[in-house]
């Protein structure tokens, strides 16, 4: 009986230690949250290590996915062939697999050509990159790309596709970089409506796209208007397409109207992107820039 009581006491004291440690760590997490919200470089530096560790697995899974889809397409195409034609089936399967992978390479080639054409037409030199991962929690709308500081990609650079802006680099390691998409709730882009030159801040609104904030009710905006970057935030070059006005409402209280914007680029599904702009630490117009 005494032994059992002693065991229970031990368990209670062990549980007390766990709870005590948990409370201490909870306080640490609150302090870290507060500190990192004021000093985003903390998260950026830490994410470099995590990004480098996870990126190879992400690329491997991507390759495995391509292989699986090629194998699946082979299987589907051969399901009706009789068993006597086994050898023929195998040759056909190989051919189908090659065709599938060539078709994939062809599509990738076309996308990269379009990226190059966009780069020369828009007059923005940049680094082409592939998206190799996204935010694992699903709460932050972000992407991981396979180019980092060794390729000239750095924090504060804009990420675009020929269809429009995707987001900006928020952390960079030598071989990878993390991109915060324009649809994330904490993302903001200085924007103007192309036809009326009305200025506002394009803020992310999650799955529903983006919202153009701080547009007064008397501003002349209509559905379908093109929203482009103003260039004033020193992140995105001027004139890049952000999206089109998808909904308007002036009925709410306050000075501003509610303007929903549908991003032109499919930000969640972009595969090849172009990283453009000047890294923050090289921008002489930013205090402290060009000093690193």
């Amino acid at each position: 009986m005494a032994r059992v009581l002693l065991g229970i006491t031990d368990r209670f004291s062990a549980r007390g230690q766990v709870i005590g440690t948990a409370i201490a760590l909870l306080c640490v997490s609150f302090l870290l949250t507060a500190y990192s919200s004021r000093h985003p470089e903390v998260a950026q530096v830490g994410s470099v290590v995590v990004g480098e560790a996870v990126a190879p697995f992400g690329s491997a899974l991507e390759a495995a996915k391509d292989g699986t889809s090629a194998a699946w397409s082979r299987y589907v195409h051969l399901s009706g062939v009789s068993i006597e034609n086994d050898q023929l089936k195998q040759r056909l399967a190989r051919a189908e697999g090659d065709l599938a992978s060539m078709s994939e390479i062809g599509r990738e080639n076309a996308r990269l050509r379009e990226l190059l054409r966009f780069s020369s037409e828009a007059g923005v030199a940049g680094v082409a990159a592939s998206v190799v991962g996204s935010d694992p929690s699903g709460w932050v709308r972000g992407a991981l790309i396979n180019r980092g500081t060794s390729s000239g990609v750095d924090i504060g650079m804009a990420v675009v596709t020929p269809q429009g802006v995707i987001g900006q680099v928020v952390a960079a390691s030598p071989d990878t970089a993390r991109v915060l998409l324009i649809t994330d709730h904490s993302s903001g882009v200085d924007a103007i409506v192309q036809s009326s030159r009305v200025r506002g801040v394009l803020q992310g609104a999650g799955a529903s796209g983006c919202e153009l904030r701080f547009v007064t009710k008397d501003a002349a905006i209509k559905l379908g208007d093109l929203v482009v970057t103003s260039g004033l935030d020193r992140v995105y070059p001027k004139g890049l397409v952000l999206g089109t006005v998808a909904a308007l409402s002036s009925s709410g209280p306050g000075l501003f109207q509610a303007v929903s914007v549908k991003p032109s680029a499919d930000v969640q599904r972009a595969e090849e992107v172009l990283v453009v702009g000047v890294p923050k630490h090289l921008d002489p117009s930013i205090p402290g820039g060009a000093s690193r």
Partner: peptide, 21 residues
């Protein structure tokens, strides 16, 4: 998990500790 988003450090750490405790 927080670092994999590269934006804020702490929220998921606090959430996991709360669940574990």
């Amino acid at each position: 998990l927080d670092l994999s988003s590269a934006v804020l450090v702490g929220p998921w750490a606090g959430a996991f500790v709360t669940v574990y405790a």
